[in-house]
Structures are given as C-alpha cells and as structure tokens.
C-alpha cells in the first residue's frame, strides 16, 4: 500500500507499468498538459490515469501520498483551483484546464513555509508524517472555504483526513492557531 518505498520493476518505464495487459483498440496514451504549482507540463498518459498517479508516477511529485487509493483516508488531498479534493478519485485528463497545487507548491518561491506548514512544525502535528501532506493541503483548502471558526469546526472540517498515528490533537491545535492568527489580522 505504501508506494513510497516500493521499487519499480527493472527496465520498465512508468508508462509501461501503468499500461493494461490488453489495451483497448484505439486507446493510446495521449498528451495531457497539467498546470501544477504554477508550472505547465505535458505528459503522455492513458485516460484511466488518476490525478494522483499522474502527479506521482509521471511528474515526479511524490509529496502527494497514496494511502487507501479509495477516497477514504485523505492522504492524496491536493488543491484544484484552490479547492481541496481527493486526487485518487479523479482522472488527470479531467484537469487540463485547472490550476493544481500540491504540498510542493505551498511554500513561497524563496522557501518560506506556508503558515500551515510552520504551524504543523510548531505544534509537532505529526508522527510518521505519511498523512501530513494531505492534512496540510486539506487545512489550506479549509482556510480558503472560510467556514471553520472553532475547534469543533476544525475537527469536522478535517474529518476527511485520517492520521493512523493519532496526532489529531496537535493537528487541530496547529490549524486553529492559523485560523486565530488570520482573524486577528486587520
């Protein structure tokens, strides 16, 4: 399940790995241009490539994690036009006209961390770290939505992100701190 440490079969490109045993006649990988973290890149993928697999296997952006691959854990959360979604349950080909932001794109170009990233460090809001990119992208999406005001809202609003280490109390503290700081600004 944890794809990060899995080695690829020797001598096979990701394209071959992802190709079906019996290709449908007439279905060839096609060009899709995705704009991720402000950079447009054209990749050759089959229509059944999920956005998650496109990011990880074809664009080398492995910050977005594959957890359950069924929309239940939230590890694959990315922002599409600022809105948080599960990258595992959508096709890459459906997003050629969207601006995609992954965990790699949250920091400012000079390397300054996003306030949510900094708050996660300050509050020790993780243990193993596997769910963290999804947690952070989800929190950033929740801040854009603007509906979460208190602890109960944050717990409900982050319910689509599972942390198997159980770092929830610190995650909630980290997110709440960013919300409270944002509210104090004029």
């Amino acid at each position: 399940m944890i794809a990060e440490t899995r080695s690829k079969p020797a001598g096979r490109s990701p394209l071959q790995t992802a190709a079906p045993a019996k290709p449908l006649p007439g279905v060839e990988p096609g060009s899709v241009t995705l704009t991720v973290n402000g950079q447009a890149k054209t990749i050759q993928i089959a229509p059944w490539t999920t956005l998650l697999d496109a990011l990880r296997e074809y664009m080398n952006l492995t910050g977005t994690k594959k957890g359950c691959d069924h929309g239940q854990c939230g590890a694959c959360t990315v922002l599409v036009d600022g809105k948080r979604i599960n990258a595992c349950l959508t096709l890459a080909v459906m997003h050629d006209d969207h601006a995609i932001t992954t965990i790699e794109g949250l920091a400012s170009p000079d390397g300054g961390l996003h306030p949510v990233q900094q708050a996660f460090i300050d509050h020790d809001a993780f243990q193993c770290g596997y769910c963290t990119p999804g947690q952070i992208c989800s929190a950033v999406g929740m801040l854009h939505e603007g509906h979460a005001k208190n602890k109960a809202d944050v717990r409900e609003g982050m319910s689509g992100n599972i942390c198997r280490c159980g770092a929830y109390p610190h995650i909630v503290d980290a997110v709440l701190e960013v919300i409270n700081k944002a509210e104090k600004q004029p």
């Binding site: 939230g74 979604i85 599960n86 349950l89 319910s159 689509g160």
Partner: peptide
C-alpha cells in the same frame, strides 16, 4: 455526508 474533499468533487 462524506468529507469536504468529496463534497467539493
């Protein structure tokens, strides 16, 4: 129902 991510999709 569901999660915020799923409701966004």
């Amino acid at each position: 129902g569901a999660s915020p991510q799923l409701r966004n999709m």
